[in-house]
Simulated assay, not measured.
Amino acid sequence: MCDGGQAGEAQASAPRPAEGTALDPIALQPVDEVRITTLVDNVYDGLLTGDDRVTRAEFGSGRVTAAQFEEGGTDAGMRAEHGFAALVAVHRGATTTTLLFDTGLSPDAVVVNSDRLGVDLSAAQGIVLSHGHFDHAGGLAGLSGRLRRGMPMVVHPAAWTRRRLAPPNREIFDLPTLSRRALGGEGFEVVERREPSLLVDGSVLITGEVDRTTEFERGMPPAHQAWTGAGWEHDPLVLDDQALVVHVRDRGLVVLTGCGHAGAVNIVRHARRLTGVDRLYALLGGLHLSGPAFEPVIPPTIDALTELAPAMVVPAHCTGWRAQHALATALPDAWLPGSSGSTYRIAA
């Protein structure tokens, strides 16, 4: 969930190291190729063109019935909503493994977009939730009939945290809370981990809790609160925030975020430290730089990413238009616009 808050509120809480043991370094096995398909994003642009790095959804994706047209139908394109979901396909030799990373906001968007792209969700071999906010987990409600029973789902144990937005002089908004019991009842095999996890024969890293080491990425404003069992308290860190990392042979790290609540630079630093791989090749996903509470974080984030010099940057979801423009200006050769239905390819 993304809330702009007020200017300066992001500086109200100091960063701290993540709890738990950091498994350092981790032997992340290199892969031959990774393809990341954005199934749900805030944006769909049917006029975007592809190249050797990205394939865009066809403009005519999603034929639907519409009696107002002579042909009896029209092309609906891809769904866009305030949420994020991606399908990650990892290729190693003759083996391909697919994981679903987040599931969007609404129960049906990820299913509708998958159908319009011709993506078979039943081929997914696992689910990873970046965190428990409902704009990344809402699509689970529509997936139970599409995925096999016993599907493993990797989550941080704080993903079940009850949260709300309580901005000054505005109505309180209670965020929908994930139910572990309900997900288990639907046949998901929930795997809770605070520490890093290796999936897909050691070739996909889930970061677990991210170390907070920068001075400028300080989390959510005071309006974002969590229930402690005794009362509501400011929840700046969103400790369940985690990212997915792949090491593409001869290229470097590919880092996929959901909202990036831990901070894009913190996440990249954490991935490099865990793996011992210095080179950041690609950064994709939400970077949470939208709104007055987070726009002051844009310049130092741009400076740090410019120094890292990634070959591909695809800011999505909650990155915000100001940060999009700044990233496109600072990293013109690396920046690619995000859009529902786009597939990004990074190969050795």
Rank of each mutant, 00 (worst) to 15 (best):
A304I: 10
E295D: 08
H317W: 15
V268N: 09
V245Y: 00
A323N: 00
L284E: 00
G260N: 06
P315S: 05
V254Y: 02
I298C: 03
S290K: 13
G291D: 03
C259K: 01
L336K: 04
S339N: 12
P296K: 07
L331P: 05
S290V: 14
A271T: 03
A271L: 04
A293M: 07
T329W: 05
C318S: 13
C318L: 12
L287W: 12
R249A: 11
V246C: 09
G291R: 10
N266A: 11
I267D: 14
G252R: 00
V238G: 03
L305F: 14
H288V: 05
P315L: 05
R322Y: 11
V254M: 00
L253I: 10
G341T: 00
S290T: 14
D278T: 12
T329C: 05
S339L: 11
A316R: 13
I267H: 08
E307H: 14
A282P: 12
R251H: 01
V254Q: 01
P296T: 12
P299S: 08
I267M: 14
G338E: 13
T275C: 02
A271E: 04
L274T: 03
L274I: 01
H317L: 07
D333M: 10
G291N: 06
I267W: 04
L308Q: 15
G263N: 04
P292V: 11
W335V: 06
A243H: 00
R322Q: 15
P337D: 05
G338D: 15
R273N: 13
P296N: 09
V238C: 01
P299Q: 07
L244Q: 08
P315D: 04
D303G: 11
L284T: 01
P315M: 09
M312V: 15
L287Y: 07
L287N: 02
I267L: 10
V246W: 00
L283K: 12
T275W: 01
W321Q: 13
I298G: 02
A328E: 13
R272E: 14
V265G: 03
G341Y: 03
A326M: 06
L244M: 12
E307N: 11
H325S: 06
L244E: 01
P300L: 05
L336E: 01
R279I: 12
T301F: 15
L287P: 03
V313D: 08
L239Q: 06
A271Y: 02
A243R: 01
L280M: 12
